[in-house]
Design a protein around this nucleic acid. Sequence first.
DNA 1: CCAAATCCTTGACATATATCAAGACTGGTG
DNA 2: CACCAGTCTTGATATATGTCAAGGATTTGG
Lengths: 196, 196
Amino acid sequence: MYSLIENDIKKLVNANDESLQFVLSHFRQIKTKRNHFLLKEGDICRTCYFINKGCVQVYYLDKNNDEATRDFFFEAQWMTNIESFSKQEPSKEFYRTIEPTELLAIDRDSFFQLISKVPPFMEAYRQILEASYSHSIQRINSFNAMDALERFHWVREYQPHILTRLPSKIIASYIGVSPETLSRLKSKLRVERKKG
Amino acid sequence: MYSLIENDIKKLVNANDESLQFVLSHFRQIKTKRNHFLLKEGDICRTCYFINKGCVQVYYLDKNNDEATRDFFFEAQWMTNIESFSKQEPSKEFYRTIEPTELLAIDRDSFFQLISKVPPFMEAYRQILEASYSHSIQRINSFNAMDALERFHWVREYQPHILTRLPSKIIASYIGVSPETLSRLKSKLRVERKKG
DNA sequence: CCAAATCCTTGACATATATCAAGACTGGTG
DNA sequence: CACCAGTCTTGATATATGTCAAGGATTTGG
């Protein structure tokens, strides 16, 4: 139950076994079916998650009530709605499992106690924040000035598991095109592959 | 010289005067003309900045060598290329002043010494990271599922100083449209305003 | 304060992507 | 195992935005 998260923390920081076990003891396990909402628009986020198995889609509803996917989270990833979690403001996003999912969860109060009491945990959190922030910047840059085909290539290069593991409709909402356009892109690529 | 940054840190954390002065003593002042590059693509970022006066544009070059602007930084904002600064990898972005600009600068080594030695500074950094990450998420969500006009409205609502202070060409590269399209949007809005 | 460079606007046209519609396919559930 | 809801594909058409071009306005630096 704790092996993935233990590895992950050890990869980030040096922590003695005692403080590591102390940290881990604050996490509880949660198992969900697919299509389970961990957080909805308007909720206050009080939990930080580490994913042991499964997949979560983070999205919001645009003005036509279509889903616009910002990100996905898979095994061995940390996940929370940072804005709502840190400032206790209502979430603007939905967090929903796409597969049956197993999570480790820590409440906000415990979390902030840990980062103030256990320096290596603060250090790990800092690194996770920096990496998450970097990742979102890459997403902005990669998607803002690319057309649909380039965005598709970008996902195939840097996040290929998204293309193999998730339904096309959801992939389309991540790439920022209609399902029809994504379908045509793929069909075009198939034809070009036959020719080449 | 230090009054803006002092206020900013005090707003975030409680720090006694001694540690605050200790922190501030690690910053040096930099004054630049407009169109000065603080960081170029390929450079390793070794500095974190606090802006006292002026404005910096962060952009990268797309495949046609057009500028795509990710963000702007103004007075009383913290700024660094987080990916390059934290991992010492080459920057993918350019940082260029748009106006004559005055900055406070701290080197990476000093910075990391401070966050490990001065807990309130670590705490301030954590809050800045969380806020910056939140901001980039809002940018992703606001721009990904909006058309050009909606993005323009969004900027007018949440970052109006961008529209009044910066040249249209640069605004267009932030909104993600060609200068011609932005010009037509504005002209359309002027007409509608006359009618209404 | 002037000249040169840059920027802004507008028109005509090209292109990418969305929308609507309909049929084929698929997988989860009773 | 079969059915049904949901998904995927493909075509026809509509729309938003890009590109190219040129003249007018504005800004910058000497």
